[in-house]
Design a protein around this nucleic acid. Structure first.
Lengths: 205, 205
DNA sequence: CAAAGTTTGTACTGGCAGTTCAAGATAGGA
DNA sequence: TCCTATCTTGAACTGCCAGTACAAACTTTG
């Protein structure tokens, strides 16, 4: 995949909607090219096929997420506060790119079969959460859990699925506000839990 | 799609691994037929194409999940306890069918573009959790939250992503034990939260 | 046994991803 | 200005493979 010029990149976002709607398999290359407003030959000059077009779009968004989340996670403040900011940051980017998110869900397989993309996904979503959990234990704002990996995955799953669902519905037109609302809900759940009794003394089971 | 005889159904599971490994797009119909040990013509006698083969496998697993989770959710006991059983039940089925799970992640798009399957997915995963949350508020074992829909989605996301990840890694050989361990971790998180301070008086933000 | 439904081998077709190529555009350097 | 390298595009082509067609065997059931 050649270095993609910015102008072309922005045009490609025009095809994200199409891919999200019909799935990569049912979106013909000619249609993708039309939707983006570029000739098929040009598309093949930059990409080796439609898989790579999707991969490019995804990588672009993941980079954005990794950046925003990274900023939120390395800001000053307690780990707990930063966790909340990071959750919101991730949701904000996702809701800003609903079409790409929808395309991602639909063709996760094709996407993650490209190994460098699977790594980027891990990097953008999962790792920052895992680090924040560890930092929270150090600074005393989050409690120690038995299996931090599973907890990080759970939080990651909660954010991702909720964000994806919001991207699919695409109801509101103030995505920043939506992100904040959803983030608050998730953080409330993750921090305070659902139990009414003051928390089982020695964990569960 | 004709009524699929049990013998054929069981053979089809032999193709799940292939589909999971390579993705539906890269798995040729002839290969799928070979992997299942049935002739291509027979496959087309029962299914309209490979999408339907995947859909069948998925529907089969979803039915299983819906059944197990339903049983757990309607057992006697507090809503909170039943929530814990339901989480474990879902994980157990997922870890029992890792290949189908992996195929599902990879080709979620193709799968959910079949409308009846999207409904089944909702039914099997999401709905029972939402009901249990509501019941928990009624019987006092779970607290009231601001946005129950978002919370149900979050829990659903946590289970699903964690289960999927476990299915992909496929490390252990005692899947029931894995399911129990992961379920305990998720339930601890969802019920007790991560906060060290006794919980913010008026929710968050 | 007849009729209906199932199983399979084989051969074919149509659509589309990806290739090729050559001609024009653009731009940068000397 | 001209030369060269890189980009852009249209158009025609190729090969693969999903899905079709169909007829012959086989099985069930009434």
């Amino acid at each position: 995949m050649r270095q993609v010029p910015a102008k072309l990149a922005s045009k490609l976002y025009g095809a994200a909607e199409l891919i999200a709607e019909r799935g990569l398999a049912d979106a013909k290359v000619d249609e993708i090219a039309d939707a983006a407003g570029i000739p098929k030959a040009t598309l093949y000059y930059y990409f080796s096929g439609k898989d790579e077009v999707l991969a490019f779009l995804l990588a672009d968004m993941l980079e954005l997420i990794a950046g925003e989340v990274g900023t939120a996670a390395s800001a000053p403040g307690s780990a707990r506060d930063r966790l909340e900011s990071a959750v919101e940051a991730q949701l904000a980017v996702m809701l800003d790119h609903p079409a790409v998110c929808r395309a991602l869900v639909g063709d996760l397989g094709r996407a993650t079969r490209l190994p460098e993309l699977a790594a980027a996904l891990q990097e953008a979503f999962h790792r920052p959460i895992a680090s924040l959990l560890a930092e929270g234990v150090s600074d005393g704002t989050l409690r120690q859990v038995e299996d931090p990996g599973a907890v990080a995955l759970s939080i990651f799953g909660a954010i991702t699925v909720t964000g994806l669902s919001a991207a699919v519905d695409g109801s509101s037109n103030d995505s920043a506000k939506d992100a904040a609302r959803i983030a608050a809900s998730i953080c409330d759940l993750m921090l305070n839990g659902l139990a009414t009794t003051p928390a089982n003394p020695e964990g569960d089971r």
